[in-house]
Each structure stands twice: as C-alpha cells, then as structure tokens.
Simulated assay, not measured.
Amino acid sequence: MTGREPQPTADAADPADPADPADAAVEVAGLCVRFGAVDAVAGVDLRVEAGQALALLGRNGAGKSTTMRVLAGVVPPSAGRALVAGHDVHAEPLAAKRAVGYCPDVGGLVPRATPWEHLQLSARLRRLDGWEPRARALLEQFDLGDVAHRVTAGFSHGMGRRLSVVLAALHEPRVLLLDEPFDGVDPVGVEATFTVIEDARARGAGVLVSTHLRDLAVEVCSEVAVLRAGVRVATVSADHMAGDEGARAYRALLA
C-alpha cells in the first residue's frame, strides 16, 4: 500500500473515453436502464481492455448486475451504448452473445440436468468441436468431476456457482462476464475461478467481475469501478482498494 488516498481515474461526469471502442473488450458509454419509473443504471461509463480484468463493486441495487445483464444480452439498454468485442449489444445481439461467456448472479442452471448435459448443450449451441477434453479439465479444476453426471437439483449454492463459471469459460470467450462468482464458494472454487480469469487475460480476453467481496476483487483484477445508485463514482487501481486503507476508501465512496 502506498498510504495515499485512491484517486479516481474518471467519474460519472467525465466525457466518454475518446479511444476507439473497437479496440476494447468492453466499452460502455452513457448506459441507462429503466424499469418503469426506476433508473437501475443511470449513465454508466466503463472500458475494459483486452487482457484486462476489471471489478465492479457497490452495494445491492448499485446497478452492477443490470450492467452485466446488458452486456450479456439479457436486458436491453434504455439509452447509451454497450459494446462487447466491438459488437453493439443492441444492433448486433447474436454477434455480441457469441463473443461473451456469462456467469449470471442467480439461476442459469436446469435442475434436472447434469453438469455434463449442461456442457453438451452449450457446446452444441455454440457448435464447438473437440470440446470434451476442456470440459473434463474444467470440471476437475472446479472439483466437480465426481458429480459430472448428477442432476444439479441437489447441488449446494457454491457448487452451482462453480458450474456457472465452468459454463461461462468453456468456449474461451473474448469477453468473460462473471457476476458474483465467489458467492458461497469454498477456497478451492475461488482458486479455480482465479485461474480461469488469469487464463482468459493471458489469451487476450477482457474480464468483468461483479462481486461484493472487495478483498477477492483486488487480488484478481487490476482496476476497480465503484457503482453507487446506478452511477459509476470512481475507477481506481486495485492496489488502492487493498487492505484496511482500501476498505476505508471504499466505504467513503459508498457514503
């Protein structure tokens, strides 16, 4: 730790990054999402470079999961621009979805299907060839090999989280979106998720991680974006969010 207070690299009032959005893994500018009279996201700007991992931190209702759902093509934007791997999620939804691997914050699994059946379905939908060795390796990495042929209805919350990360990572996407991947996950699962993120960065993918766990976020991400009430209030180096000083700085940003 440097002992310095973290300095935001940008705030919600800053103009959009003038760099070419096609060069970024994720480019979000002026993103707004409204549900009736509620502004779930109210003008968020984000940029994730290829090979970078960015963490989204904030309280419940800050807009983290809604932003992730827009990027995954689950929720349409009400205004603004959202691109993944250079594809506009509104204008090019299929191309954008092909570029993304998405671990949702809740749901996403079929209770009466096994992990292997989930992987088979994902591979068929994405027309993957030779996917079985990677699938087996990921299941073993996440300590799910012994339950590969058990229906997920009896899985614990942590086991479901681990399987969701496996499904997101299977096709080696250009953009990896992990929403609360550490929630209820044991140390083996946390370490396996770290490895998936590091491998994605090494092959040039962009990674966006939404989590409540600041200490884990700063271990695996290079930058942290803090959302409050649907607005990005700061983007800071992960180093400045580490330790006790980082905890105090984070609380100040949420106040």
Rank of each mutant, 00 (worst) to 15 (best):
G145I: 12
F155D: 13
V89C: 11
G58C: 05
T152N: 08
V100M: 08
A99P: 10
K97D: 04
G160N: 03
T152C: 14
A113H: 11
P76L: 01
G101M: 11
G101E: 09
L119R: 03
H149K: 13
R134H: 13
L163A: 06
V70R: 00
H157K: 15
R69E: 14
G108A: 07
P111I: 04
A148S: 13
P93V: 07
D143A: 15
R59Q: 02
R69T: 09
L54V: 15
S65F: 12
G107D: 03
D88H: 01
A95G: 01
E92S: 09
L94Y: 11
L125R: 06
H90G: 14
L54R: 05
G58H: 02
A82D: 08
Q120E: 15
L121A: 10
R81C: 10
S78F: 08
R59D: 07
A113R: 10
H157F: 12
E117P: 04
P77I: 11
P133R: 04
A96F: 10
D105R: 03
G51N: 06
R47L: 05
L83E: 06
D129M: 01
S164L: 15
R59W: 01
R69A: 14
V147D: 03
G73F: 01
G107N: 04
V84I: 12
V48T: 04
E117N: 01
A72I: 12
L119A: 09
R127Y: 10
G160E: 01
D88E: 02
H157P: 08
A62Y: 05
A96Q: 12
G158H: 02
G107H: 02
A148M: 12
A123V: 08
A137H: 10
A99R: 02
R124C: 09
E92I: 00
S164A: 15
V110W: 13
L119S: 11
D146E: 15
D105W: 03
L109S: 07
E49L: 12
V48G: 02
L125K: 00
R59M: 00
Y102R: 00
A96T: 12
L56F: 13
V75Y: 01
E140Y: 00
A55P: 07
V84N: 05
P93G: 09
A53Q: 04
P111V: 03
G63W: 04
L46V: 06
R98F: 06
G80Y: 02
G108I: 10
A55V: 07
E132M: 07
A123M: 09
G63T: 07
V100N: 07
R69D: 15
G107T: 05
G80D: 06
L119C: 11
A55E: 02
A79P: 02
G160V: 04
R69S: 14
E92Y: 00
A82I: 09
V84T: 10
H90I: 09
G107F: 08
V147L: 09
A53M: 07
G107M: 07
W116Q: 12
A123S: 09
P76N: 01
G145Y: 06
Q141P: 04
L109I: 07
L94M: 14
F155Y: 13
T152Q: 06
D129C: 05
P77Q: 11
